[in-house]
Simulated assay, not measured.
Amino acid sequence: MTSVERVTEYSELQSEAPLESDKPPPKDWPNQGVIVFENVNFAYSGYGPLVLKNLNACIRSKEKVGIMGRTGAGKSSIIATLFRLAEPEGKIMIDGVLTSELGLHDLRKKISIIPQDPVLFTGTMRKNLDPFSEYHDEELWKALEEVQLKEVVEELPSKLETELAEAGSNFSVGQRQLVCLARAVLRKNRILVIDEATANVDPRTDELIQKTIREKFAQCTVLTIAHRLNTIIDNDKILVLDAGRIIEYDEPHIVLQNKDSLLYKMVQHMGKTEAAALIETARQVHLSKHRQGITQNGQVPKSSLSAISPGLVLFETAL
């Protein structure tokens, strides 16, 4: 009877939104990677509690934003709203295009993600890197080389045509994570989401992943769900969630000036030496960024948002 109940439940599940829409986005969309959340509320089911409440935020083109908060604060739910795993209330716009009006394929294939639990499929290494056969061998090898997996794959019996074990069990967790990173490098999307990708890997692989992300995704908007504070302390901004609401959203150095902030308290829990190092890193990043951003007349340049929509600039200023 349990099996019957499951089949009945699955047969009554509400279908997702259409995979294609009548108004597909431009071919080069998104070309800047500006993300705007406007009055976003989100629940995983129609009768469930809200896990995101009145979310308002503007993420500029090429910004690196760390998302942090305690367990259950709503960090992963932000990713669910971006990919529309369930439909949120309110507006989410990417480069001025309302995501709720897009087909799911049009939306999801334009956002790369490196998940916390690396996913490999039964099949060849080629299929895992390029499941839709969109890239040439040279591009596949180059992506593997950039994540330092080229030598590993070359040693496989059939190289790119080697069949992987179920769930990639013949690779270490770190290597599986690097394969996911290679996928993201191949896609060359303007938006990258990192969901605690280095939570389960050794420090050396963590360092390699962080270095590759900084180099290969410098021109992309990157959202990182934080597991280790040192991986996001040098981000352009940190977004701190608590019970589904944004309570802090600014440059790490500025947030750390408030000793009552949740970020400051979490940094202090790292111990005096580590806390001092994190605070100094945030300060140096702040000084470096503002030295580069000040123009000859002493003004910080306008955001590239104005190139998309004047309304976004007004919204950003209001925030």
Rank of each mutant, 00 (worst) to 15 (best):
S3C: 07
R6V: 11
E12A: 12
L13A: 07
L13D: 02
S15Q: 12
P18G: 07
N31K: 15
G33E: 08
I35F: 06
N41A: 06
Y47C: 12
K53Q: 15
I67F: 01
T81Y: 02
E89R: 12
G90T: 04
I94L: 01
G96I: 09
L102R: 10
K110S: 14
P115W: 01
V119R: 07
L120G: 05
L129Y: 13
P131G: 10
S133V: 14
S133R: 14
E134K: 14
H136L: 10
E139A: 14
E139P: 00
W141S: 02
W141P: 01
K150L: 06
V152A: 11
E154C: 02
E166M: 10
R176P: 06
L178N: 07
C180P: 06
A182Y: 13
A184N: 05
K188Y: 00
N189W: 00
R190P: 09
I191V: 14
L192Y: 02
A199F: 08
V201Y: 11
T205P: 06
I209T: 01
K211Y: 13
T221F: 10
V222K: 01
H227W: 04
R228S: 07
N235L: 05
R245F: 04
E248M: 08
P252I: 06
L256I: 06
Q257R: 11
T273R: 10
H286N: 10
H286M: 01
H286I: 03
H290D: 02
H290K: 08
V300R: 01
S306Y: 13
I308C: 08
G311Q: 09
E316M: 09
A318N: 13
